[in-house]
């Protein structure tokens, strides 16, 4: 934080610190007559950055978490650029370091898909699995960057000491639900494509109790179906949010935070790839189930 707000920083409570760190940088529209965080009143509708959590909420649905979106797309660009570069310069001889890593990841995704799809690879699901794994892994890894480093840097660069800046996109439910709802749509798409609309609806309505218990079947199967994207998104979000929160709590310990950060980072080192792996595996399994007509 800059010098002017040093006094304010002294009185900064733990709650305020946490709240500040857990608030996304939101860009959206505030209506005319809206009273801003600093007390000023808007004369007309304005597209602007939210200066408080309340403003962010009041911007409604058509607002954007600039930081989540930016980091998400930035990390995805790193992923596709690295992979594209390797893909274009594939050598058949002894692969170099980067090519090795890329090949391991590709084969890992391919093997995982083959295991679920009875030995066959899938031209769409396999790259999907690779994209999910690498992308989520990169996003989760942002959690290992010291919690105040990038926000402080952004505050210095923008000159706004109150800038909200979250660097771990997977601690934003919008991002995790973005993934899981896409996967959910794919589940429905492949279910209908493979089994036909009738087959898909029949699967929902006629199991597990037979046609005389149709409403109960619909409720049970509907919940099962809907629980998939929700559990996918919440699992990832919950793990990473909790991890981030713990880093923030440790960051308030003064000098004792250093060993604390280390210990938690070591634990978190397990969580980061594990969550990416779980998300990828469950996506493959759900899509594999969508490809199987047996119930």
């Amino acid at each position: 934080m800059s010098e002017q707000t040093h006094a304010a920083e002294e009185t900064l409570t733990s709650t305020a610190y946490l709240k500040h760190h857990l608030q996304n940088m939101v860009f959206g529209k505030l209506p005319a007559g809206y009273e801003r965080h600093d007390g000023s009143v808007l004369e007309q509708d304005a597209w602007t950055m939210a200066h408080s959590p309340e403003e962010a909420v009041d911007m409604g649905f058509w607002s954007l978490n600039v930081d989540s979106m930016g980091w998400s797309i930035g990390l995805a660009l790193i992923f596709v650029m690295v992979f594209r570069k390797v893909a274009k310069s594939m050598t058949l001889g002894v692969p170099g370091g980067l090519q090795n890593v890329v090949e391991i990841l590709v084969e890992f995704a391919d093997t995982s898909v083959r295991e679920t799809f009875h030995g066959r690879s899938h031209p769409a699901v396999a790259p999907l699995a690779l994209t999910i794994f690498c992308w989520i892994l990169l996003m989760n890894t942002m959690d290992l960057v010291p919690v105040d480093l990038l926000p402080l840097l952004a505050q210095k660069l923008s000159g706004d000491p109150h800038l909200y800046f979250k660097v771990v996109p997977t601690t934003d439910p919008n991002i995790t639900f973005g993934f899981s709802i896409s996967v959910f749509l794919l589940i429905i798409y492949y279910s209908i494509r493979i089994k036909g609309l009738g087959g898909f609806i029949g699967e929902l309505a006629l199991h597990p109790f037979g046609k005389w218990m149709l409403p109960a079947n619909l409720i049970l199967e509907g919940i099962t179906l809907l629980a998939r994207p929700v559990s996918l998104a919440l699992r990832l979000f919950g793990n990473l949010y909790a991890g981030e929160l713990l880093f923030l709590l440790v960051a308030m310990l003064g000098y004792f935070q250093l060993p604390g950060h280390f210990v938690w980072a070591v634990f978190h080192l397990l969580v980061i790839p594990l969550q990416a792996y779980i998300f990828m595996m469950l996506t493959i399994i759900y899509l594999g189930m969508a490809h199987e007509s047996s119930h």
């Binding site: 996304n24 911007m59 607002s63 954007l64 978490n65 979106m69 919008n174 639900f177 973005g178």
Partner: peptide, 13 residues
Amino acid sequence: NFNATLIGQMIAF
């Protein structure tokens, strides 16, 4: 709080 980031992420995905 959900906002258009959700849709943005889906498109990006």
